[in-house]
């Protein structure tokens, strides 16, 4: 089933432009289709063949004990593993039907479509405005100051940060609290108009209140984006996601509706993990 696809090959002029209205995907359309994905760090295998479909307009959570490969797989989805010299990826991952490991694919264009938020908030040492404007600027998404102002404002609004920072856009982004920084980073990712947002344990460095705000935000963003979140907190996975995938020792053990995984897991290992027998 191949729906509307945007070319992954550079130059891609459609980045950041409003999406084609005919491009109606829904929570039943797979955004990513991964088949037999293997990752090696040097000679050491980290993932032993992952098969998964990740749906658009929904939140998919990756859970599993530390070192199980969930972050590694997440980084395959926007080819961030390219930045690790020893990493090697095999298998196919289709984004809207196109293989993103194809040699012709420009990872720079891919990453503009598949944004990422990291474990530790990593705002650049620039002002709040410059942080959000960074992506639009390098991709040339705004032709005037007004347009840029508009992108910054709408991105900060989407990340529910606008009300808190609208009066201090030109102060350092690093001066915000941890939770605000993480939302700033999300706004920064939204500003380039991605289709997917990958989140690698986005709340692990935050307090419960900031975490609750981010979770609320994730739930809102689900209306527009395909979201994949890696989390150590099973409660968080249960709260925010519609689909949950359980990874263990480099294997995808089980994937399904979040409700089913937490109430009625099919695999003994999943059962053990969610009941806290190992972790």
């Amino acid at each position: 089933m191949k729906l509307y696809t945007r070319p992954l090959y550079a130059p891609d002029t459609s980045i950041g432009k409003p999406r084609d209205p005919s491009m109606t995907t829904s929570a039943t359309t797979p955004k990513f289709v991964a088949r037999d994905v293997k990752v090696y760090y040097g000679d050491k295998p980290a993932l032993h063949g992952i098969d998964i479909d990740i749906l658009d307009k929904s939140v998919t959570a990756f859970i599993g004990p530390s070192g199980c490969g969930k972050s590694t797989f997440l980084r395959c989805l926007n080819r961030m593993n390219d930045t690790i010299p020893s990493a090697r990826v095999e298998g196919t991952i289709l984004l809207d039907g196109e293989d993103l490991n194809d040699r012709k694919v420009d990872p720079v264009v891919l990453r503009a479509r598949v944004g990422m938020v990291f474990q530790k908030p990593n705002p650049f040492p620039k002002t709040i405005y410059e942080n959000v404007a960074y992506g639009p600027k390098i991709h040339g998404l705004a032709t005037s100051k007004e347009e840029m102002d508009h992108i910054v404002e709408s991105s900060l609004k989407k990340a529910s940060l606008w009300n808190e920072v609208s009066d201090r856009l030109h102060q350092q982004g690093t001066g915000l609290s941890g939770g605000q920084q993480q939302r700033l980073v999300i706004a920064r990712a939204i500003a380039v108009g991605p289709e997917v947002i990958l989140m690698d344990e986005p709340c692990s460095a935050l307090d419960p209140i900031a975490t609750a705000k981010i979770e609320e935000l994730i739930d809102e963003l689900r209306q527009q984006f395909c979201i994949v979140i890696v989390t150590h907190s099973m409660a968080q996975a249960a709260r925010v996601s519609q689909k949950t995938a359980f990874f263990h020792l480099g294997n995808l053990v089980e994937v399904g509706n979040t409700e089913d995984i937490f109430t009625n897991p099919k695999d003994q290992r999943t059962q053990d993990y969610i009941t806290g027998r190992f972790g």
Partner: peptide, 18 residues
Amino acid sequence: VPQSLRDGSLAMGATRSE
């Protein structure tokens, strides 16, 4: 300079020299 800053920039589709 923390690697996280580089990752953050690369993950937005910036090239290495950018």
